[in-house]
Design a protein around this nucleic acid. Structure first.
Lengths: 214, 214, 214, 214
DNA sequence: TATGAATGAGTATTCATTCAT
DNA sequence: AATGAATGAATACTCATTCAT
């Protein structure tokens, strides 16, 4: 008697999302603001205190939100970090796409120039955050989207290399991106902020690996 | 539809403002539907996840209503459970009333038969829900109406027993209802669904207690 | 170079125990006392506030121990409850074993007497706790040991029934234990504390089911 | 055994009472063994579970010592990690010293060869541990001794570069070490274990940066 | 009247560290 | 010197409930 007639009234349960994906996509103005505030607070803490300093309560407090609100948007602490990483990767992919467009039709030296610039861009914006997020990325099991973004970046570099007849473009792209990152990381870590000089050295490293005379 | 049709069975008291009573008695069609949807959602969750799984947000979501709306119909989570318990007790009282009518003028063995059937009826309908609600009932401070329903059931049994000249009908009714419940609970808990066999055993238990030869 | 020679120095990791088993068996005097204090605190809370009132912090506080200490002995909240249930079942099995010994060579009526007494014993000791634990038992996934204790009790009853030529001793034992529990539960719940009267009624119920004339 | 044999390589300062320095320098055989066991246990956990898995209790248990004993050798958890990092740096300095000796009198290409080999050596020994420790190093406030070890390594490279008339040897050494680390890190991270191939690519990167024709 | 964003007290659990024995 | 019992601040996360829109 209880309920047989009510079945159609009931909504089906929302499918469980992974712990890395945001809990709800903000639809209203207010939500979007809150969500952004949380991410920005997390970013700031990451910049100043590193991954150790990130606690959900701390993030919520700095964002000016209650802890409950934070958990309405993110199902777990990692989801916040994952969102930041995804954001960074999105920005980076955008950087690489403009660079690739810029490199089109240019010779290898100029193409290298463009790509090297792209790979530094996000450090230029917020060096400490970029560092922290790249470190965080290693501990996180990345979601599909972020992996796709990374693959997209690599493919762009591979394409440029192949266009210029570089041998073994995949492996070469891998090494170039690795060594670039090594140089930028160490420089930023050491407090360097003269990005022009840094860029020159990276050109030298990348060009050297590719066998382009300086 | 959901139990409210039985209200006239009992002289209802002035509606208490307690946390256990629904906030508003649904007068309009739409309200009644919403209210029923909420109760059914709660019932479903109780059946599938037990009392642990019940959360107001979950109930609201499954009912297809906002959490705010849920709180317009029920002042607190317990009120939902209380309403379900009341509903179950109303159904049970109805079962016992038909049984009592059926038992009228019959000998004790047949009367027992009818009453035993009545005491199993609600388990037959939705066993898991019945189990969950009986358990829930113990934690809840019951409202007057539900207590009255329980008293009504007991009185019906007492009346039947007295009609057949049973000694100490109150105490006997109490024991018979207790032991019946013990057997049904354990059986349902153990997964038994052959309710005919179960009924036979309950007749044996009740009959035995009353000294009726099998 | 680092460590190759040190391998034998390292102890192997302790195998993970389930969340239901105690974390360490107290070897020293002090440990045993602490462990007992925690269990007793949990029991007391269960008696007074029911399962809702049990929180690890509350238990620790009442036991006069820090929360950290509690977790040295029990890997999870459920482990405390599981330990209490196990303890109760051990006591009950002991009760049933003496009853079975006492029933040996006696006629069925006296055997019933002994078994009925055994099934009430733990309610006699701490009625509210017994109630709460039996309720808790339903929510818990019991460990092997506790299941074995329960099986042991049932087997003892089955053996007694079989000794007296009762038909379908397993099913009968199941029903008798169920109906006994139903009566005791309801009586204790209703506040009865005259256990002699209660025992008489249970004898009547059990005897009746077995077809023994009162 | 574990790195302490290298101590004389550097003029050691008066032992600081900081949280990063071991509490007591093991003078007796038994102490040294215990200390080594603790460090090896920490190393093992770092290799298998990463920095997340390291807890003092876990380390002590795996080392077969009590937690109290662990704290007699190390004033804080970080001191254990710091000791491991120092150990790694000592080993690395040793690697670079042999490489520098090997490079003496050779041409730049051969010198590069030797230095590249040296910078991979510790990854060859225990890749996972090397990765973990290099990551740990970033979070740790390093003690004087470790900083001196790092400076010693850099100075060796600088000296080799200067011997071959390389311009801006400090900066160049810094970049070469950075990019080498970038390549090794990424490769190890990606699971590469063909260190010969890796070495060839690093020679190409380093040689390229220095303008040596392949 | 309905919505759903926001709240925050409360809960289980961990882990570095201390100290009595 | 070694032990291991005890500590408690800190942490991630939940969920009943409120209230502005």
């Amino acid at each position: 008697m209880l309920g047989y007639s009510l079945a159609p009234l009931l909504a089906s349960e929302t499918p469980l999302k992974s712990r890395l994906n945001p809990r709800k996509t903000p639809r209203q103005e207010r939500s979007a603001v809150t969500c952004a505030a949380i991410l920005e607070a997390a970013a700031r803490i990451l910049e100043t205190s590193g991954s150790q300093g990130i606690t959900t309560n701390h993030v919520a407090a700095l964002a000016g939100v209650s802890i409950g609100t934070l958990y309405q948007y993110f199902p777990a602490k990692e989801a916040i970090l994952a969102a930041l990483v995804r954001q960074m990767r999105q920005d980076m992919l955008a950087d690489f796409m403009s660079a690739a467009r810029e490199a089109e039709g240019k010779d290898l030296a100029h193409a290298v120039d463009a790509m090297v610039g792209a790979s530094m861009c996000h450090h230029l914006r917020r060096p400490a955050l970029a560092q922290a997020l790249e470190r965080e990325e290693l501990e996180l099991k990345l979601d599909k989207e972020t992996l796709a973004l990374k693959a997209g970046m690599r493919d762009l570099v591979v394409a440029v290399l192949r266009d210029h007849g570089i041998d073994q473009p995949e492996r070469t792209a891998f090494d170039l991106m690795s060594l670039s990152r090594g140089i930028v990381d160490a420089a930023v870590q050491a407090g360097e902020r003269d990005f022009d000089d840094l860029k020159a050295r990276m050109r030298r490293a990348v060009g050297g690996y590719l066998g382009i005379a300086a």
